[in-house]
Design a protein around this nucleic acid. Structure first.
Length: 643
RNA sequence: GCUGUCAUAGCUCAGGGGUAGAGCACCUCAUUGGUAAUGAGGAGGUCGAGGGUUCAAUUCCCUCUGACAGCACCA
């Protein structure tokens, strides 16, 4: 009869099979009250499930992170019941727990609107207050299909039909209402609590397939208690304040307008930021052994046909023609075919490999309108692109070298945390299995050498080779995929790139496609959001403002500004007839990192009062001393910082 | 691209079948002040574009364009 091992190692013997509830009660009334579900040998289960064999048990209480998923999943069921109660004829489909909450997809002729939310939420609270017990039932497959068909729940019936034959069909009841569900659930609807909120409605394709019907999805957030819910809502509000589109306007960095959808108008300050990043990258690439090139924007169709883009990528390409010439050209969506053209000029020797060819390549891609997002997802962008032409043996050392370069760059931009995804061979691919074996093995061993831990992303590689994707985490915990390293055996073949081997033979180089920032537009958007516009000094488009207290200090302020400017700092003066309070407030709101205040006293003593953004105090320094300090502080992180 | 929502002054937003309003920003004048808003005055809008209904449309209807959210896409 079951011997049940608790997390502390102690064992309880029971004379006959028992439910989780019984076990909890046997341990103590406190636990019996707190337990929401159990983990039996690691598998989450309802407390009502009978345990008839020896097992390790762990009870899930509200304190466990696992409780969040239970709360959210149960709340999804309650949402579905509420909706079917209020809107008869609505079909239920699926409703999983997701990060921060849950959603439920409904099939209904008229989609839901946020105006429906108050009624639905009220109904949900009603159902929760009833404390309806969750009851698990195992049904016969055919009976279940017939049942849901008879109710007009065609989507549910389809789900059951598609479940693998080995799967037990389970249904959960809560009061009068029931739903097909794998479970597990908590004891009753009351366990959900009140800390949830319906957030938004959205269309979503049935089973994520754009050829199938669009359903009406309701998103909600749910937490253990009101405090957690409030914290989450606050975080959403904070994230909105960081929105690069808002900051871009407020800081006068860029704009986008109707006549050039998906392209950025960089304003002076935004372009200064862009150039700072570009200059930094140029230095890093130079130091990293890359040579920079620049290739054409408009390239004849024939090259795209040869590269395979015309066949595989045409719908994403901008095509251009001219009246007087019978030619079709395309704006390049990628730089690789052009780089191969440079490689192909003249005979290449194995001695030149690895050959690292970098370009700040301006590309155009016709992205679907719904994909566009500020400067993060655009149709005209510049990649920090490079292709490394090398031998197969050089893949591993080049990968190590690349990861080293990339991690240093991310660190300099303030991202200490990044993750790596390893995407291996997809179902449809070019190249033999042996080549794939070699390419994947080379990448893996390179990761090991470089000390890179990766998560496997099975089957997600490019058709021509495996790839690494570098995902960085920003200041508020969001993930952004920026860097990539792709191994390519196909393009050198298609575009006939070759080099002379040590034995005077000819061989195909391997191409490594790689980017660190991804696109400048997107990366700058990430930087803006990561820093919420409060850039470190070396990146700030305007680094310093010299603000006067009285007009008697104007002349001195201009002298200060001019000396700072000569030292290479981005400085402006504020000599307006405004009170110093107003000036400080305005420049603080504009996120200028440093305000140098000068009044009569400073002008007489040749000092400046330095106030840092976010700081409440200021300190007074001699002008020469301040100048030296600021120049040092504004030095980009890759340059010498000698005092 | 799909579904939904939205589009009024530079920005944030109110309004509503009888040709529009606030706050901030902007301009002018007064004020020369010591670390997050000095005061007073002024100017500023084909109400996204096109069509329809109506005596009359910024308001109602249709189409288009764009934005936003999600889905699909991100080769």
């Amino acid at each position: 009869m079951p011997a049940i091992t608790l997390p502390d190692g102690s064992v309880r013997d029971f004379a006959e099979p028992v439910t989780g509830t019984t076990v909890a009660e046997a341990i103590g009334p406190g636990l019996a009250k707190a337990a929401l579900a159990m983990q039996l040998d690691g598998a989450m289960m309802d407390l009502s499930r009978v345990i008839d064999r020896d097992a390790h048990i762990r009870f899930i209480t509200r304190k466990d992170d696992a409780a969040l998923e239970l709360i959210r999943h149960d709340a999804a069921h309650v949402l579905a019941e509420a909706v079917q109660d209020l809107f008869p004829g609505t079909q239920v489909t699926i409703g999983p727990a997701i990060e921060n909450g849950f959603y439920y997809d409904f099939a209904r002729n008229a989609p839901f609107t946020p105006e429906d939310f108050p009624a639905i939420e009220a109904k949900m609270r009603e159902i929760i207050a009833k404390r309806a017990k969750f009851v698990r039932e195992e049904w016969d497959r055919q009976d279940a299909i017939a049942f849901f068909e008879a109710r007009g729940e065609g989507f549910k019936a389809e789900l059951i039909r598609d479940l693998p034959p080995s799967e037990t069909i389970t249904v959960y009841r809560q009061g009068e209402w029931l739903d097909l569900c794998r479970g597990p659930h908590m004891r009753d609807t009351g366990d959900i609590g009140q800390a949830f909120k319906l957030m938004k409605v959205a269309g979503a394709y049935w089973r994520g397939d754009h050829t199938r019907p669009m359903l009406s999805r309701i998103y909600a957030t749910a937490w253990r208690d009101q405090k957690e819910l409030d914290a989450h809502l606050l975080q959403l509000a904070e994230a909105e304040k960081r929105d690069h589109r808002r900051i871009g306007r407020e800081m006068d960095l860029f704009h986008i307008q109707e006549e050039a959808v998906g392209s950025v108008f960089w304003h002076e300050k935004g372009w200064r930021l862009y150039r700072t990043v570009e200059a930094y990258m140029r230095r890093k690439l130079e130091a990293g052994g890359y040579g920079e090139v620049k290739t054409p924007q408009l390239v004849d169709r024939s090259l795209w046909e040869a590269s395979g883009h015309w066949e595989k990528f045409r719908e994403h390409m901008f095509i251009a023609t001219v009246e007087d010439e019978d030619k079709t050209l395309a704006l390049k969506p990628m730089n690789c075919p052009c780089h191969v053209q440079i490689f192909r000029q003249g005979l290449r020797s194995y001695r030149e490999l690895p050959l690292r060819m970098a370009e700040f390549g301006s590309c155009h891609r016709y992205e679907p309108s719904g994909a566009l997002h500020g400067i993060m997802r655009v149709r005209a962008f510049t990649q920090d692109d490079a292709h490394i032409f090398c031998t197969e043996e050089q893949i591993a050392p080049e990968t190590v070298r690349f990861v080293d370069l990339l991690s240093g760059i991310y660190r300099d931009f303030g991202f200490s945390d990044f993750a790596v995804k390893f995407s291996d061979r997809p179902a449809t691919r070019a190249g033999s299995d042996q080549v794939w074996d070699r390419a994947e093995a080379a990448l893996k061993s390179a990761c090991a050498t470089a000390g890179v831990d990766y998560v496997l992303n099975p089957g997600e590689g490019a058709f021509y080779g495996p790839k690494l994707e570098f995902v960085l985490r920003d200041a508020i915990g969001r993930d952004w995929q920026c860097g990539t390293l792709q191994v390519d055996f196909v393009l050198p073949e298609r575009l006939d790139a070759e080099y002379v081997t040590a034995e005077s033979g000819r061989a195909r180089p391997v191409m490594l496609h790689r980017a660190i920032l991804g696109s400048f537009e997107r990366f700058l958007g990430i930087l803006i959001e990561n820093y919420a516009g409060r850039f470190p000094l070396w990146l700030a488009p305007t680094q310093i403002v010299v603000a006067t207290i009285v007009s008697d200090a104007d002349e001195y302020a201009q002298e200060v500004a001019s000396r700072l400017k000569k030292a290479g700092l981005a400085v402006i003066t504020d000599l307006r007839n405004e009170k110093i309070n107003a000036k400080i407030r305005e420049h603080s709101l504009a996120h200028i990192p440093l305000i140098l205040v000068v009044g009569r006293k400073e002008a007489e003593e040749r000092t400046v009062a330095i106030r840092r953004l976010g700081g409440a105090s200021q300190h007074v320094m001699g002008l020469d001393e301040a100048l030296a300090m600021l120049v040092l502080e504004a030095t980009p992180p890759d340059l010498e910082r000698d005092a």
